[in-house]
Simulated assay, not measured.
Amino acid sequence: MAEHRFLASKYDHNLTSGTITWQSPSNIALVKYWGKYGAQLPMNSSVSFTLKNCNTRTTLSFEKLLLAKTSSHEKFDFEVYLDGKSEESFKPKISTFFERIESYLPFLKMYRFKIETSNSFPHSSGIASSASGMSALALCLMDLERQMKPEITDDYFIEKASFLARLGSGSACRSIEGPLIVWGEHPKIEGSTNLFGTPYPFELHDNFKKYQDTILLVDKGEKQVSSTVGHDLMHNHVFAKQRFQQAKDNLSKLIPVFKNGTLSEFIKIVESEALALHAMMMTSIPYFILMKPNTLEILNRIWKFRKETGSAICFTLDAGANVHVLYPEVEKEIILEFIDRELSGFCKNKEFITDEVGLGAHKISN
């Protein structure tokens, strides 16, 4: 499926001004993507749980310019606010995003935009807001396009929104829908594509439909190495080929696990993926470590608790020090008590966020 199907044709309606609001969640990858090429395309396929409580709400206000910008050298006209305050530091990333998507949304230089965004989680919490933020903005822009071209179908709307979100932040394409999203071509998953996220198409056991994710905020500071730099280091990584094959194999292994609800196998695959991600960071040139001593202490205590109790608790990690504690809903009470008693002390200010699997983004009535 080529990108050209997302190129816009002539718009039927002329809008002068308006306001659109969408709320979009973050997501947590179970099989990790690490390494990309071209226009934000993944070197391996991934699958993620869409979250419910960690989300970004974005309001896009637009006003048509008296004279549209026609030169490729002219800048886009927009301002950005986070929690009601002007946020200049966000502008370079959004400018790059607009440059990438202008050929698919040619109206971008016809309007002046005001982007107002807020997160349900603390801004400095160490949770990546790029997935939720970029997907929410992509949905607002797609909503504007559909208002100008009402015949756009729901399926096309979702696919193009995910496609656009990917060009802002790769993992953002997995935040549009839920509860389980695949991104990247995989030989055993028909319809999977590098261009946008797609709902997991096979049977999903009840064990996974209300899965819990408690996020332990080990480190709330800025990462020493950005994810963008980390992805780039995979180009010449000595273990890159093996890692991409490992991810593909692990996604294949998860297909029967998702069907049968075998939590012991789920745990093995998910924890292995988390550690493999950080192994790539520790063996790249230059190498780096994003885990902190408290991260390791938490992992060891999770292993100890699981061995002693037979719990189905496990962990996964993003590209950072924070720990996502995963467990089935039936264990929620006992796991939260364990986290509060034994793990919260290794978090900054004992902070953690309780979340669970969600169903994706939705529009907010203005």
Rank of each mutant, 00 (worst) to 15 (best):
M1V: 15
H4G: 00
R5G: 01
L7T: 00
S9R: 06
S24G: 12
N27S: 09
N27E: 05
W34D: 04
Q40M: 15
M43D: 10
S45C: 11
S46R: 07
F49G: 04
N53T: 08
T59N: 11
E74W: 10
L82Y: 14
E87K: 14
K91M: 03
S95G: 14
E99A: 09
Y104F: 15
L105T: 03
P106V: 01
S124C: 14
G126M: 04
L139H: 00
D155N: 09
K160F: 01
A165I: 09
S169G: 05
S175I: 01
I181M: 13
N207T: 01
K209L: 09
T214M: 12
L216S: 05
L216C: 06
L217N: 11
V218M: 03
F239Q: 06
I255P: 00
F258D: 00
N260V: 05
G261P: 10
L263M: 15
E265G: 08
E271K: 10
E273S: 11
L277N: 07
M280D: 03
F288L: 13
L290F: 12
I298R: 02
A319G: 12
H324P: 03
H324V: 03
Y327T: 09
E333G: 12
E333K: 14
E337H: 13
E337Q: 14
F352W: 12
T354D: 14
L359V: 01
A361T: 08
K363R: 13
N366F: 11
